[in-house]
Simulated scan of single mutants.
Amino acid sequence: MNLDKSKKRIAKRAKMGFQGFPTISLTYYGKTTSHANEVMIEFVLEEGADTQVERFSSKIDAREDEVIQSAIVKMIERSEAKTVVQIDGVLIAA
């Protein structure tokens, strides 16, 4: 899937706000706030359920990695997530 198309689909779902469960949360991490070399995806099936975590790493910026962004879209679709939360910016990895 095209990188721009993937990013737009994720952003559109994130702008919808809370729509119920299941939920997927996306958090980008990096050594600096300008370069994300890792993305953490958290999936919650229902309220009170355990969180399932998946991480992807990239040598380039994970936000610009077509493979990672396409995989995120597929995870959203396959899990039938009603809510997508995308944390703005890049958090500094400890």
Rank of each mutant, 00 (worst) to 15 (best):
A94D: 10
F43S: 05
A11C: 06
I72M: 03
A36P: 02
R9C: 14
T51R: 14
L45K: 04
G20P: 02
R55P: 09
V39M: 00
H35E: 03
S34I: 07
T33D: 10
E64C: 04
S58W: 00
P22R: 09
D61Q: 11
Y28D: 00
A81T: 14
G30F: 09
A11R: 08
M75S: 12
E54G: 04
Y28S: 02
A11Q: 06
H35R: 08
A36V: 13
E47L: 10
L91C: 11
A93K: 05
Q69S: 07
K5Y: 07
K31D: 00
S6N: 13
A11E: 15
V90G: 03
M75W: 03
K74R: 15
K59A: 15
H35D: 01
L91I: 13
T51F: 11
T33M: 01
T32L: 04
E47I: 11
E64H: 08
A36M: 03
D65E: 12
T51H: 03
G17R: 06
I10D: 04
D61E: 10
D4M: 13
M75N: 05
F43P: 02
S25V: 04
A49L: 01
L45M: 14
E38T: 07
S58D: 02
G20R: 07
I10A: 11
H35Q: 07
Q86P: 01
E77V: 09
G17D: 03
P22V: 07
E80W: 14
K31E: 00
Q86Y: 12
L3P: 05
T23R: 05
A49R: 13
G89H: 08
I72E: 05
E47W: 12
A62Y: 08
Q86S: 13
K59W: 10
L91D: 14
Y28G: 06
V90C: 15
K82E: 08
D88I: 08
M75T: 06
G20F: 09
R13S: 13
R55A: 09
E47P: 07
E42K: 14
S6Y: 10
A14L: 07
I24A: 02
I10N: 02
M1K: 04
V84S: 09
D4R: 12
G48T: 03
L3D: 14
Q86D: 11
D65W: 00
Q19V: 04
H35I: 02
G20K: 04
E46P: 11
E47T: 09
T27Y: 03
E80T: 15
R9L: 15
Q19M: 01
